[in-house]
Simulated assay, not measured.
Amino acid sequence: MRAFLAVLAVLGLALAQGVVKGLTPAEVERVLKQANLAYEKTEAQEFRLEMAGLTKVWLFLDYCQEERCGVLTLSAGFTLDEVPDLEAINAWNRDRRFSRAFLGEDGTVWVESDLDLTGGVSLGAVAAFLDLFAEEILPDFMDHIGFEP
């Protein structure tokens, strides 16, 4: 029985090493480098990324306690000659699960997505979050609003 418990304890420690419940800005930079994303740190908890042919995609770290932050938010804003109506924005929000769209006060059309780290996620899940936004959400949203980079 003790051997079984020891194996469970070691297995638990091995699995726990791959899980994070928050990231520091330096850890986010390492993840961005591993994902081969071009980026610039613009503020202490903010990065400008290049994704999906865009040069201004924002990554914000939120819900921070000291240096460790529990929420990552990706967002991109689009200025269009013809602003989509609220019906088009609502259709995006109704039909999509992992992002939300809204109109800014200045008429900019935004799409955002959050990743909550506080319950614990793997660094692979963080990389998958970045990939989902770059490879699916942004291209689909640009098509939805008629934007070409």
Rank of each mutant, 00 (worst) to 15 (best):
G107N: 11
T73Q: 07
L23F: 08
F78I: 06
D95G: 05
R96A: 06
A76R: 04
P84W: 01
G77W: 04
T24Y: 08
T73H: 03
L80H: 11
D81T: 06
K56G: 08
A16F: 08
V71P: 00
R100Y: 10
T55V: 10
N90I: 06
V111Q: 00
L37N: 01
I89C: 05
L54A: 03
T73W: 02
K56A: 10
R100E: 07
A38Q: 09
M51H: 04
A101N: 02
F102Q: 05
A52C: 01
A101F: 00
G70K: 02
E46F: 14
G77E: 15
A35P: 06
V20H: 07
D81N: 02
L23T: 09
V71M: 01
Y39K: 11
P84A: 02
V109I: 06
E82K: 10
N93K: 01
L115I: 07
D62K: 01
A26H: 03
E29W: 02
L74V: 12
W92I: 13
D116S: 14
G70W: 00
N36L: 10
K21C: 09
E82M: 09
D106I: 14
R96G: 05
L54Y: 01
A26V: 10
K41T: 09
L74N: 03
F47R: 10
F47Y: 09
T42A: 12
A52R: 00
S113L: 05
L23S: 07
A14L: 15
G70V: 04
T42I: 05
K41F: 06
L72K: 01
N93G: 03
N93E: 04
L54F: 03
T24I: 14
Q34G: 12
E40Y: 15
L15K: 06
G70C: 04
Q34I: 15
V57K: 00
E105Q: 12
L49K: 06
F98P: 06
Y63M: 13
A26K: 04
S99Q: 08
Q17A: 14
M51C: 05
E29S: 11
V83W: 05
L74C: 12
T108V: 08
W110D: 12
R96C: 06
E105N: 12
K33M: 15
V111Y: 01
L37W: 03
Y63S: 11
T42P: 01
V19C: 03
V71H: 00
E105F: 13
F102D: 08
C69V: 02
I89G: 00
A38F: 12
N90M: 10
N90T: 10
A91N: 05
A44D: 15
N36A: 11
R97S: 12
G53N: 04
D106W: 13
M51F: 04
L49V: 15
L61H: 03
E40F: 14
E40K: 15
T24R: 00
T73I: 09
D62Y: 02
V20A: 11
G77H: 14
A44Q: 11
E40M: 08
R97P: 10
G22I: 13
T79N: 07
K21T: 12
N36Q: 11
D114G: 01
G22V: 11
N90G: 07
T79G: 11
D95P: 04
T55M: 09
G22Y: 04
N36F: 14
K56F: 07
